[in-house]
Write a protein that binds this DNA or RNA. Structure first.
Lengths: 341, 341
DNA sequence: TTGTATGCGTTATCAG
DNA sequence: CTGATAACGCATACAA
């Protein structure tokens, strides 16, 4: 016996009562004589009794904890989102279990299974970029596990979703660059398998179109590791910079991608924004220091975590199966720093 | 019944065997007829049987998971450390449960209790800056829960510890500044309640002393929130900059503190390193972009996570109580960028 | 109002 | 080689 923890049995024995009486007193159910109740509660307090959550989980098939799975916590967008998640969950007495997929499909699958078998009451998921097969989620979702997708979502599963308006963010950013005299705007972006990547691409393209700027495919480069692997970003940037149609501005989505691009530019001896302008989607507070560009697109990460968690509790707490799911769209903010070329 | 998960009972019923037989076959214990064993394993595979970890935890009083508690994951030092932790833990088939204290004593206490009651097999802890009373750790440690402290440690508990050589890091950084002609070096640092803060202070002071530079108390400012609250850092910096003895260089430990200082300096219109030099302890890859200073002190965060986890497993896996604890000290690296004033 | 018995999923002990 | 039973800590239907 590793830990001699106090159990309901110990209390029962010590006070000459049955375990059921103790149990009832402790959780205030049934009316039991307020006398023994008081006695019990005092004793429990005295010997510092704590119910065993594992036993509870086994019995009740729930754990009062929710699982979160993101690609990386070393990404300010996600760590801020997690803080938003915690802010809601802890208020409700829930614990938050954080896991990373590191963009790996395999890892995501294993982790999700593990969380589910640990009886998490719900799951907050931002899909790994490697993932195309969603059956591990579908299976659990069909079994009734509440899932809310945030940021990186899928259309293959009917549930609540929370996203940033990536389309509008990219559209606004691109338009802003155009309005300030930039015409050759490159787009170094993330994995094309991600919903957010395609939304951003759409915004970028439509902004060009609206301004009668022809779209040059070669100015768009995908980084399958979303900026986590620096060399990939550098190579993508190099391709664009060494092309015929040399860009005068850069649109980069995501925290890591943006900062990797900045590092690469610096390494190439390019000054921002003198040599090339840059607008990034980033929540890194460091961004203020970079003077990276005209501006930056700020994503409401904390709020996204909060909203996703509230929606998750909506499912968890509803007695009957939820059928009317919604997709909440949060707006980005364009932080304007300089406005001239 | 929320989830219809397959249990050992289902298998037993389906195959007309007893649960004990099934259990034995599944875990390969005892010699049971290789015929029924094969049958069983195949069937289990077919219906995708997964043992219920909660039931196992209840029975075995262990969970094959370890808990990590840090102040913030939105801090590159810690998120990198966590990646190091995971890299070791997952190889051993252990899961990692990440929690944040947000520097709050209360939160740390609650979380630690929760992890313990969830039967984590061990704890990796970096102490919250608010914490002075360690009884929540002491109690668990005495009950036999393996604990390893990393980065922010305590002398009140005898166990394995892993730290960065903060003394030498600060000494080297300060010496480097002095060697490059800086003499009025301010030290904006973290909470004085932290072991790391005091070690760094010692290194800073001794480097000054070794170079016959008098130590001006007013050049040292403590930020009790370790850079998480920007205004506090700005105020500290302001105090130093507006003092009589205006510094020509800055030594800032920690990821958040360093970057907050840089933001504040920028806001004050100060250029780094032209107006003021800066050496920070930082693992932010962004640091490369800042050109923050002559150099930077890099902490081996990933490695620290790995070492701490290995030490933890050393305790977890030893059958008899461990008595010879060690404190592992990892060296920082001084990344030199510019060498002239 | 309180006690007894049962079960959550699994393994260990003991009998057969 | 296999099966019945108890136990891990708790909650609850049922009985008293």
């Amino acid at each position: 016996m590793k830990f001699e923890t106090v159990t309901i049995k110990d209390i029962a024995k010590a006070l000459g009562l049955s375990t059921s009486t103790v149990s009832r007193a402790l959780r205030g159910s049934y009316e039991i004589s307020s006398e023994t109740k008081k006695l019990l509660l005092e004793y429990a307090e005295k010997i510092n009794y704590r119910p065993n959550p594992i036993a509870l989980s086994l019995k009740e098939r729930r754990s009062r904890s929710i699982g979160v799975i993101v690609c990386e916590i070393a990404n300010n967008f996600f760590s801020q989102a997690i803080n938003g998640i915690e802010s809601i969950a802890y208020n409700r007495g829930y614990h938050v279990i954080i896991s990373q997929s590191h963009e790996s499909f395999e890892r995501e699958m294993v982790t999700v299974q593990h969380l589910a078998s640990r009886s998490v009451d719900g799951l907050l998921v931002s899909i790994a970029s490697e993932t195309t097969d969603l059956s591990h989620f579908i299976e659990l979702h069909e079994k009734g596990l509440p899932i809310v997708f945030f940021d990186r979502i899928t259309n293959e599963i009917e549930t609540h979703k929370v996203v940033v308006n990536n389309y509008k963010g990219a559209y606004d950013a691109t338009t802003h660059l155009i309005n300030n005299g930039f015409k050759k705007i490159a787009h170094i972006t993330g994995s094309p398998s991600l919903s957010i990547t395609m939304e951003r691409l759409r915004g970028y393209k439509e902004a060009l179109e609206a301004n009668n700027i022809p779209h040059d495919e070669k100015l768009v480069q995908y980084c399958h590791h979303n900026g986590m692997i620096y060399d990939e970003v550098e190579e993508a940037l190099m391709k664009v910079m060494k092309g015929k149609n040399k860009p005068d501005a850069l649109l980069t989505p995501g925290d890591r991608l943006t900062t990797s691009c900045m590092t690469a530019l610096k390494k190439m001896g390019k000054k921002i924004p003198e040599d090339i302008a840059l607008i990034g989607f980033t929540n890194t507070n460091l961004a203020d220091l970079f003077n990276p560009s005209l501006s930056a697109i700020r994503q409401p990460a904390f709020e996204m975590g909060q909203v996703a968690t509230e929606l998750l509790f909506q499912i968890i707490e509803s007695k009957r199966p939820v059928t009317d799911f919604e997709t909440r769209v949060l707006e980005t903010e364009l932080f304007i720093r300089e406005t001239t070329k």
